[in-house]
Amino acid sequence: MTIDLEGIKKIYQIGTQEVAALNGIDLHIKQGEFAALMGPSGSGKSTLMNILGCLDRPTVGSYKLDGKEVAYLGDDDLAKTRNKKIGFVFQNFNLLSRISALDNVALPLVYAGKSRRERAERAYHFLKAVGLDTRANHQPNELSGGQRQRVAIARALVNDPSIIMADEPTGNLDTKSTTEIMKIFIDLHEQGKTIILVTHEPEIAACASRQLLVRDGVITRDAGRGEKMDVV
C-alpha cells in the first residue's frame, strides 16, 4: 500500500467560523495505480493534493506513505519526504527560469545531496527519457509549453519517487502537447509508477485507471477506468 489516508480532516479558521476543507477522507492508493482526482473548485481537491504531496498537514487523521506516518512531520522532515518520495508536476511548470533545463531537472538531486557528476548523469538520463536530451542546455524560456512540461516531468522522476503528483499538468497546454504529455503519463503508469493526477477535464481523467471525485471535502465517487464522471 503506497498511500493510506485514514479520517483526514483539514479545518481552517476563518474569523470565528471553522471551515472544513476536508471532512473525513479515507483513501488507499496502491503501488502502480494511476488515480485521477477530480472535483469542482472549492471542493477541497487542492487541499487533498497538498496533503498527499506533503506540502501541508491535516488537522486530524493519519497519512501513511509507504507505511510511514507522515501526517505530522516537521517542516524539514516533510521537505525531505517530498524530496525522496514525491515528484511534482505543476500546471504552470514551475521551472527556475535562469538555469538550464538540465540544471532544473537536477535540482531535487542537489537537495538529496548527490554529487555533481551523478546529478548531471541522472538528469541527462531523464531528459532523454522525455525526448529532450538535445535541449539540455536551453533555458526554460527557450522551450515550448509542452517541452517545459516534459522538463518538469523529468524533474519529477529524477530522484526516483514513490508517487508522481501532477496538478493540472495539461491545463496550460494546447491539444497536441496535451496528447504528448498524457502519453508520457500513460507510459509511466505502464512502467509501474504510482501517479496521482488532479484535473477537471473528464477526457484527461479517463486516461487514469481510477477516478476519484471530491466534493465538499469528501470523496463522493470512486470509479474505475473509462467510467464517465460528471464533475459539476
Partner: peptide, 16 residues
C-alpha cells in the same frame, strides 16, 4: 518567492 516555493516543494529544507 516563487523560486523559493519551487525549491521547497522539491525538498529544500529551512537550512538549505
Amino acid at each position: 518567492t516563487r523560486e523559493i516555493g519551487i525549491r521547497k516543494a522539491l525538498g529544500a529544507t529551512f537550512n538549505n
